[in-house]
Design a protein around this nucleic acid. Structure first.
Length: 261
DNA sequence: ATGGTAGTTTCACTA
């Protein structure tokens, strides 16, 4: 099974780019974040045309929104809400016996201080609640995959400059610590770092604000695929589709793919 | 320290 995660930054604007992702990566399951569309306006026809006839979607007007599109049937579809908000940041479904969780963690604003910045406080609380929701359920359950825009780049080589990013939201020690607690909650294994050693820089997001994203290459790895331990021996391939950042009308995030044999 | 771009909810908000 090939599973892709992609922050698409408006599914209505970029539905056609899903076909290009399908042609490059041949995924069986595509998990999207920031769809920015109420469910009744989700471009179902486009996904069906590309072969993704099974959809689990949770969207709202203008903000957030997550979706799982699959070539195989989706069962046990469920949304979870965190920090008391119904803001379409989680959807889960079971596909081919694997429980897939798709998450869009709050970005957290600009100031990395929960007292000064409510968005940062929300992000930290959100991470705490995800960790709590998975604690203790890793074992004795069906295999699980967690994907999404987690809005944290945990390793020093998940950002273009560890030193310059330590006080920038997405790479602060408190966020890295809390993401680490999420990862420990179900013994999640970072499936991309399973293939790529921590000495190698890896990014999945480049700001729209750079003059030349490719030349400056000030990226961050915000988009992740994690698997439960029993799936690790089955990990067979990964791709971070850097090319997609250069497409016309690109998202600022690129698709990340892992294959599980 | 500043401002840069993109998307949708638009002369404002989120990222």
């Amino acid at each position: 099974m090939r599973i892709v995660t992609w922050n698409i930054n408006s599914v209505r604007l970029r539905a056609d780019l899903v076909e290009r992702v399908a042609q490059w990566l041949h995924p069986d399951v595509i998990c999207l974040q920031e769809t920015k569309s109420p469910d009744e306006f989700f471009p179902r026809e486009a996904f069906e045309r590309f072969g993704y006839t099974h959809l689990a979607i949770s969207g709202m007007k203008g903000y957030n929104g997550v979706a799982i599109a699959s070539r195989y049937p989706l069962t046990a579809v469920r949304n979870l809400n965190f920090v008391g908000r119904e803001d379409c940041r989680h959807i889960q479904a079971t596909v081919q016996g694997i429980e897939v969780h798709n998450l869009y963690v709050p970005a957290g604003g600009d100031i990395p201080d929960p007292d000064e910045n409510k968005k940062f406080a929300h992000k930290l609380a959100f991470l705490d609640e995800i960790a709590a929701s998975f604690t203790g359920i890793g074992r004795s359950r069906r295999p699980m995959v967690l994907v999404g825009d987690l809005n944290v780049a945990p390793l020093p080589n998940d950002v273009w400059s560890h030193k310059q990013m330590l006080k920038v939201v997405s790479h602060t020690p408190i966020e890295v610590e809390k993401l680490g607690a999420v990862q420990a909650s179900a013994k999640w294994v970072d499936a991309v770092r399973h293939f790529v050693p921590p000495e190698t820089q890896l990014y999945s997001w480049w700001s729209y604000r750079a003059n030349d994203w490719e030349a400056s290459d000030r990226g961050r790895r915000l988009d992740h695929i994690w698997v439960t331990p029993k799936l690790v021996p089955s990990l067979s391939e990964y791709t971070i589709l850097r090319e997609a950042r250069g497409w016309e009308q690109a998202s600022d995030h690129v698709p990340v793919m892992v294959e599980i044999r």
